[in-house]
């Protein structure tokens, strides 16, 4: 009864404002929105900017727009690159989630920020969420949210290691007793994988492909560790010398080759985190293993790569894409508990 009344007036959201995708978790409902963080903006004849599309619709326009429409990805490297557009996008998402409600509820939002983000970047994220219609904004660090969402018991006096590979950043964190013991954030993520594929194709094939194509290649045949059967994909790109679209075929080993650099960066961050972890916690991690979350965990055999490089068991969390948003949702549930959490800034 009290819950029903509360739900009428208060709407609690957990937002994973990611570089690639934005996810919204509604308390008591679950993940209700999962859309690409893309906004299409139309410039009208008077020079006014107007939001043309947001999310999935905008992503379909990516790279296919006429001159008066531009598609923008307002988030870069896990932080806000375009403040106003981010605000508009959030506003759109929050309204979409709250559509059909009689009155505008008091909206409380838990939003995640990368561990390595600066205070300025955090403030920008918080303020843009506030301006998008949230009454109260709580900021939580992504590794903690990812660990919570993966189901890791973060409150125990045991070390757990989470590697969250997002679109813009990868976060490696050792967590014990609800806090981050050591964390490392590198600005390598799905986007860097795509860029690596684009530049590899340009280098090796003298062909130009778009980000969307690169992403498709990565998702379909991308792999992080050799050993699997080799798969192939047909790609159409523009030949740089001839200037005309051409067909060509890529295989998974080439993608593995293309991804070497960003993958090495992630492995290095994991190793560095292990090096700097206190030995007691390190032994806990060795015993239990490293948990992979985030969209990057879906790259085939990434767990195997990290496992081989570190010699530790690596497991992939269930539904790795939504871990952070679900973890934020768990934080929402504890917002109402008295005095259990504290703030920092």
């Amino acid at each position: 009864m009290i819950d029903a009344v509360r739900r009428l007036f208060v709407n609690d959201l957990s937002i994973d404002l990611g570089t690639a995708n934005t996810l919204v978790y509604v308390r008591d409902e679950g993940i209700v929105l999962n859309e690409p963080s893309v906004v299409a903006i139309r410039l009208d004849s008077k020079g006014h900017k107007k939001i043309e599309a947001v999310g999935i619709d905008a992503k379909q326009m990516l790279g296919r727009t006429p001159t008066n429409i531009s598609t923008i990805r307002p988030m870069r490297d896990g932080v806000i690159a375009d403040y106003t557009v981010t605000e508009k996008m959030l506003q759109y998402f929050i309204r979409k989630v709250q559509k059909g409600r009689l009155m505008r509820p008091i909206t409380r939002v838990v939003v995640c920020v990368p561990y390595g983000s600066t205070q300025v970047e955090r403030r920008a994220i918080r303020e843009s969420v506030e301006n998008a219609g949230a009454r109260k904004v709580y900021v939580i660090e992504e590794p903690i949210a990812a660990a919570l969402g993966a189901g890791i018991p973060v409150g125990e006096a045991r070390g757990s290691m989470v590697v969250d590979i997002g679109g813009g950043t990868s976060e490696v964190a050792v967590i014990s007793l609800n806090g981050i013991v050591y964390a490392e954030s590198v600005r390598i993520g799905g986007d860097k994988f795509d860029e690596a594929i684009v530049s590899y194709v340009r280098r090796q094939y003298n062909m130009l492909i778009g980000e969307a194509t690169a992403e498709r290649i990565k998702q379909e045949i991308g792999t992080a560790f050799p050993g699997h059967e080799v798969t192939e994909i047909d790609v159409v790109g523009r030949h740089l010398a001839a200037g005309v679209p051409r067909n060509f075929t890529m295989n998974s080993n080439e993608i593995l080759d293309a991804l070497q650099e960003p993958l090495a960066g992630i492995v290095k961050a994991v190793k560095q985190a292990l090096e700097r972890t206190p030995p007691e916690l390190g032994s806990d991690v060795a015993e239990r293993g490293i948990v992979l979350t985030g969209g990057g965990a879906l790259l085939r055999d990434l767990d195997k790569l990290i496992s081989e490089e570190t010699g530790l068991p690596v497991i992939i969390a269930e539904d790795p894409l939504t871990c952070v948003a679900r973890g934020g949702g768990m934080v929402l549930n504890m917002l109402d508990r008295q005095g259990d959490f504290y703030s920092f800034d």
């Binding site: 838990v110 955090r122 918080r126 109260k136 904004v137 709580y138 900021v139 939580i140 660090e141 903690i144 919570l148 189901g151 890791i152 018991p153 973060v154 409150g155 609800n178 806090g179 768990m330 934080v331 549930n333 504890m334 259990d340 959490f341 504290y342 703030s343 920092f344 800034d345």
Partner: peptide, 11 residues
């Protein structure tokens, strides 16, 4: 999974 007792949050 039990929710933790305290989490660092920034409000």
């Amino acid at each position: 999974p039990q929710t933790p007792a305290r989490i660092r949050l920034s409000a």
